[in-house]
Design a protein around this nucleic acid. Structure first.
Length: 200
DNA sequence: CTACCGATATTCT
DNA sequence: GAATATCGGTAGA
């Protein structure tokens, strides 16, 4: 892995890229995480995607070339990290939802005191915090070396699919992928729909 | 273990 | 003003 030429697969269709990211290793700021859970977002046809309503300052990187990171700030306090994939202009991306820390475990623990090892990156915002990824990493090229992605050389386990988490539109689509039996996969949180404006 | 609720930036209505 | 690709604290079983 002396070069990153093997990231070319990121330019393929998002539903082929997403499962191939399972088992890949993302490294930044002294910590490496093996990806165990992802979700696919297809800007052209996906009402849940940030790119669905067109290009905005936040989502513009999704409309660019594959192989870049799309990091966004949400709920006023959390970061989430995506890998832009698909053809340039397709505006599709894969959200990295969870992973297993395989290097820099001491650094990761120091960033999240009190958390158990399997919970260090169990959730998209936690994964970003453990890897110290924030808006400074938005739009970075994975080939540039600040953040590196090492694809899995072989299947890392059984891939399962299911509905995406936390989305209201397109929630019935099985666009979430994870590795069966991995304890680091985030528990399915059924997006407890807030009650309609009834009493409160 | 499950369930609810608050914090709050970006975007849309 | 309202919704959102979330998490952590608190309450209860």
């Amino acid at each position: 892995m002396s070069d990153s030429a093997d990231l070319g697969f990121l330019g393929g269709p998002v539903f082929e890229v997403a499962p191939r990211l399972l088992g890949a290793v993302l490294r930044h700021a002294g910590v490496a995480v093996r990806i165990t859970e992802v979700e696919a977002y297809d800007g052209a046809d996906d009402p849940a995607s940030h790119a669905y309503r067109g290009e905005t300052p936040r989502s513009s990187v999704m409309f660019g070339a594959p192989g870049h990171l799309y990091v966004y700030f949400t709920y006023g306090m959390h970061h989430c990290c995506n890998v832009v994939c698909g053809e340039t202009g397709r505006a599709s991306a894969v959200l990295l939802r969870a992973g297993e820390v395989i290097d820099g475990i001491e650094t990761a623990r120091a960033r999240r005191p009190g958390a158990s090892d399997v919970a260090l990156a169990r959730g998209p915002a936690l994964l970003c915090r453990t890897l110290d990824i924030d808006l400074a990493q938005n739009r970075v090229d994975l080939a540039a070396g600040d953040v590196t992605l090492t694809p899995a050389s072989a299947p890392s386990g059984t891939v399962q699919t299911g509905p995406r988490v936390g989305v209201r539109h397109g929630a019935d689509l099985a666009w979430r992928f994870w590795l069966a039996g991995e304890p680091t996969v985030s528990t399915h949180r059924p997006a407890s729909v807030r009650r309609p404006a009834a009493g409160r």
